[in-house]
Design a protein around this nucleic acid. Structure first.
Lengths: 180, 180
DNA sequence: GCGTGATAGTTGGGTATAAAACTATCCCGC
DNA sequence: GCGGGATAGTTTTATACCCAACTATCACGC
């Protein structure tokens, strides 16, 4: 991350690339993306990438990665949620959650309590410290989101969001004749 | 991936979840996403996730991950490109590229040739086998893209794509007063 | 030609994530 | 109450990625 993205995005750094780069056959700003240029999947990856990093910047100084933020939000909004339900909501495998939650517990941001009637599962909830951190991060997230709004423009936002939702829904339904 | 996404997306699997799940405090379909529900960053991640998996399904049977596909396209479109330029175009760190290219070379899909006038850099190009595989994958990608079109609807596609581009560009320019 | 600073690629260390196998627990019908 | 089948969470293994440090090479000015 850093300058590599800049060059992809529209060149932030004009000073660089003048001697050595010019000889390496493809001068970086004249790259032919071919069909990639207009494939949704590719652009989606770039946008997600950028958003992730922008958020990380927004929340820099706070010792919690963007990925864990969603986890906190979901626990905060759904106290007592199980790990499995949380992993589903967050679209990550439940096994990925184990180390994350271990860490959050270690930092005393969440609590894991055994459910009364099902001793297999945990009930997750925020600690007061977790609530406090969540509040701080929410401010960052809102700033980030406002930043995105400036880029998209408020008119298109709703439409854009709706398409994102349709995409996530539509692409998944069509492919999983799975059992589980 | 699998049923977890389905439940998020709109429930493909009605048979499951009826007994055990009902008691674990938060029944998965009544999750409160709170502000997450309409945060672009979060939705972007879900959509990208879904797209990635859908593409993987489309190209299942072909032994090449979606990530490497973009690499092949870029090399095919820009013969002689250097690894650094490629990593930039693909928005990944150049160090991530090393093992990927090693693998592609091992499978005889690409060639790495030392540049004449700069013995530090390589010039990458497809082998005939690489061209052939690229052609096969392009078919998959086009099918995938058509699938996405069905979901988005052709009217919104261009607008959607444009917003994705603006987002990637806009979010990156504003955050890297980096040197590198 | 030689030092200085930049660049191409690799290596090493660390994080995030997924898939599959596993353990413990649960539900249900008999 | 017991056995079969499902579920919650963990562990193991493997992959993809980043960043920082490293080596080899280059370019330029003197």
């Amino acid at each position: 991350m850093t300058a590599l993205h800049a060059s992809l995005a529209g060149e932030t750094a004009p000073p660089a690339r003048s001697r050595a780069g010019a000889r390496t056959s493809v001068p970086a700003d004249t790259i032919d993306y071919g069909p990639l240029a207009n494939w949704i999947g590719f652009r989606l990856r770039l946008a997600q990438n950028a958003s992730f990093q922008a958020f990380a910047r927004e929340a820099s100084g706070i010792d919690l990665s963007p990925g864990r933020f969603a986890t906190l939000v979901l626990i905060g909004r759904n106290p007592g949620i199980s790990q499995t339900a949380l992993s589903r909501a967050n679209a990550r495998d439940k096994s990925s959650l184990t180390p994350v939650l271990d860490d959050l517990v270690r930092r005393k941001l969440i609590k894991r309590m055994r459910a009364k009637n099902d001793r297999r599962s945990y009930q997750l909830m925020l600690t007061p410290a977790g609530e406090a951190l969540l509040a701080k991060l929410t401010v960052c997230a809102e700033r980030h989101d406002r930043h995105i709004d400036e880029i998209i423009g408020p008119r298109d936002r709703a439409r854009f969001l709706q398409i994102l939702k349709k995409l996530a829904a539509g692409l998944l339904v069509s492919g999983n004749g799975h059992s589980r």
